[in-house]
Design a protein around this nucleic acid. Structure first.
Lengths: 196, 196
DNA sequence: CCGAGCCTAGACAGACCTGTCTGGTAAAGT
DNA sequence: ACTTTACCAGACAGGTCTGTCTAGGCTCGG
């Protein structure tokens, strides 16, 4: 037990953090293929050897970038999931949060969808990170839907995942404010219990 | 008036067609940045000078590729739009066609969404082709919705455009067959006249 | 027969890409 | 004092990218 703070293994070294932060900004903002390793190295103020020490290949950095984004979103959603209030409102809150983010500055669509476009091979490690994230989100929606007592949570969750994808694409390519204004209604219509 | 067939100006030269066909396959299947001009030239069996004669820059080819895709989709949709039957069915038919295409072999999402991911600058010519295509589709949906007598065709069209984006993303990244099975229900729920 | 238009073949330039390697610095643990 | 670890600086190799240029062939109308 050393005296210095070492939360788990060791505090994340600054260089790695700087690389990851720079990569996030550039990959998300300009695209993955469009950003070279050299540029990340320059903007992060890091030596090339240090970069390749932490990330043996560019794809490793891409995976780490997406995993971190996934963790962030999971943390955010867990806050909304365990809020008080009726389950219907918590479900809507998750989608409104997506619409809200879409209105924020620098929004450029879903990092996972965008990464998939740049990695066409479904077997690529990057695509597996994307698949895991999507499976998590779908599970989240299904659980919230089940908590509302919806009779068909699974197919309806499929529809709501489509809606989520439509929100992020629409907020990027069309009018984000208009998209945001439609979110609550769209969730309500899709999640409404179909009358027999 | 020459005797040879000359529909408008002159029959499309084979080289240009070969370039465009090859570009479509490679750009759509592997991504735009991922495919170099050299490879298109090689697979189209065309000289480099010929390529740059028809398309002064790669971006010109990208625009032409997308414009052609847009024209194809408009032609397809016009067939569905002017079919007989109630307007509700024609609206559903448009979306089911999207779901159907998503189940086809080689489907890799929406060419326009994918291109936007690779061209982050909204002012880029490629993005303007995308914007025009999206505006057309939204107009199509709005018109069909209005034909059903829907009281709020415009916001509902916004929701249905989101659904379309969700279908193409979902069919690419998730289970296309499941997505297709959900399309009709999702359209119906979103386009249902909200009871006061 | 001849010239215009469209085509092929391929060298070339200059930039950028990923990834490797050498060598040196500085702090922290033992 | 010694070693380990993390870091910085930058040259280098081998490949790919877009786009330009030279040089010539093939066909068809006049």
């Amino acid at each position: 037990m050393t005296t210095t703070a070492a939360p788990e293994r060791r505090a994340a070294p600054p260089a790695r953090r700087r690389i990851l932060d720079t990569a996030r900004n550039l990959f998300y903002g300009e695209g993955i293929r469009a950003v070279g390793v050299d540029r990340i190295i320059a903007e992060a103020g890091v030596a090339k050897a240090t970069f390749y020490h932490h990330f043996p290949a560019k794809d490793d950095l891409v995976c780490a970038y997406l995993k971190e984004q996934s963790d962030l979103q999971r943390g955010l959603a867990d806050g909304l999931r365990s809020a008080e209030g009726p389950a219907e409102e918590r479900l809507v809150a998750v989608f409104e949060a997506v619409g809200e983010i879409g209105c924020g500055p620098g929004f450029r669509g879903c990092a996972f969808v965008n990464a998939s476009v740049e990695y066409p091979d479904p077997a690529h490690p990057v695509r597996q990170v994307v698949a895991a994230h999507r499976a998590w989100f779908r599970g989240l929606v299904r659980d919230l839907l089940a908590a509302t007592g919806h009779p068909d949570p699974d197919p309806t969750a499929g529809m709501l995942v489509m809606l989520r994808d439509g929100i992020v694409v629409g907020a990027d390519l069309d009018d984000a404010a208009e998209v945001r204004a439609l979110v609550r209604d769209a969730v309500t219509r899709l999640a409404a219990v179909p009358r027999s």
